[in-house]
């Protein structure tokens, strides 16, 4: 007779694994990916592929030859980093920059800290911010969307809607005069605007987010508190002076807010673990985003906001413990 196994309870396990979670995230990214392929054409496909392949290859090389540990590229986390990195860059970005960005994302953002689960900062955002600071011109040359474009060069470029408003306000123009210069709200919502690959279509990102919610990969806390706090904060500003502050809906559907709130901020590794902590984290991200967007030098502040809040995660985790069951509430 074979030996009986002795182990502690529980003796059953949920049908859940890291790999399933990662591929679940990838599936949820498909709608946004399709939208970007539709509006930016071949360029988008090539950038996405380059980012994914280089992220996986860098992870493999580092794990195999530098750390000399087990190779875990199959868990899908490097693929997600690649896709998210591609989502954060314009479709006409020179490919070598994409490769450099991938290296920074995987090498500096993730493997330096010991790989999956140990990185304090979202690797894709580390890569993105690195590229943003190192190659500002290339990173802010946004191609205008041309549906089903197969051409690689000669695309028309232009600023993002956020940049238009920011520059205009900076020159002293009124918001009401500037709004006609940007696409209609409906277009912004669907994704027919210039911008980074994955951030353009709010609707596709929300769809993906809903899928992740249903699969219980993410919880509602971070996206809702993040988007909600941006809405409220910009709403207050708009209410104070609608001439220089643009309305909150505009803030929600432009820039990288949806991508950041649904995918970047909810990254399991770099977000707090307790529901209360998640709410605080989301609110922090929201407030910082608005501060950077409205008062800062950059037109977009999502990546910086999330990276800054990432640094606070250990403190948040420590400070906001869940309310224990049966914890004495008030004696009275």
């Amino acid at each position: 007779m074979s030996l009986l196994t002795v182990s502690g309870s529980p003796h059953v396990h949920a049908d859940e694994s890291v790999r399933k979670i990662m591929y679940g995230v990838l599936i949820s990214l498909v709608p946004a990916m399709l939208v970007s392929f539709y509006f930016f054409g071949l360029g988008a496909i090539i950038v996405t592929l380059t980012a994914v392949v280089s992220c996986v290859v860098f992870e493999f090389l580092i794990q195999k030859y530098l750390i000399k540990g087990p190779v875990t590229i199959c868990d899908g986390s490097a693929i997600i980093t690649g896709v998210l990195l591609a989502f954060n860059v314009p479709s006409n970005l020179p490919l070598w920059i994409v490769v450099v960005g991938s290296f920074v994302a995987i090498g500096m953002g993730k493997m330096t800290f010991g790989g999956l689960g140990k990185n304090p900062f979202n690797p894709a955002l580390v890569g993105r911010v690195f590229m943003m600071i190192s190659f500002p011109v290339q990173m802010t040359t946004w191609p205008k969307p041309i549906p089903l474009n197969t051409q690689l060069t000669d695309v028309v470029t232009g600023p993002t809607a956020l940049a238009v408003v920011k520059d205009g306000v900076g020159r002293g123009e009124k918001v009401s005069e500037l709004l006609p210069k940007v696409p209609e709200y409906m277009d912004l919502f669907i994704g027919n605007m210039g911008g980074s690959l994955g951030e353009i279509s709010a609707i596709a990102l929300i769809l993906g987010g809903l899928y992740m919610l249903v699969r219980k990969i993410i919880t509602w806390h971070i996206p809702v508190s993040y988007i909600g706090s941006v809405f409220i904060f910009t709403g207050i500003l708009w209410w104070v002076n609608p001439d220089i502050y643009v309305d909150p809906v505009f803030h929600l559907i432009t820039g990288g807010l949806m991508l950041g709130a649904i995918y970047m901020a909810t990254d399991m590794v770099t977000s707090p673990m307790t529901p209360k902590g998640m709410l605080i984290f989301g609110i922090g991200c929201g407030v910082l985003t608005v501060v950077i967007r409205v008062f800062g030098a950059y037109p977009e502040g999502v990546s910086f906001a999330i990276l800054i809040m990432n640094a606070f995660v250990p403190i948040i985790d420590r400070a906001f413990k869940p309310k224990r069951f049966g914890e004495e509430v008030k004696n009275g």
């Binding site: 890291v18 790989g115 689960g117 140990k118 998640m278």
Partner: peptide, 10 residues
């Protein structure tokens, strides 16, 4: 494998 801090246990 390593903890990915998903928070499911919490």
């Amino acid at each position: 494998i390593t903890c990915i801090r998903c928070g499911k246990c919490v």
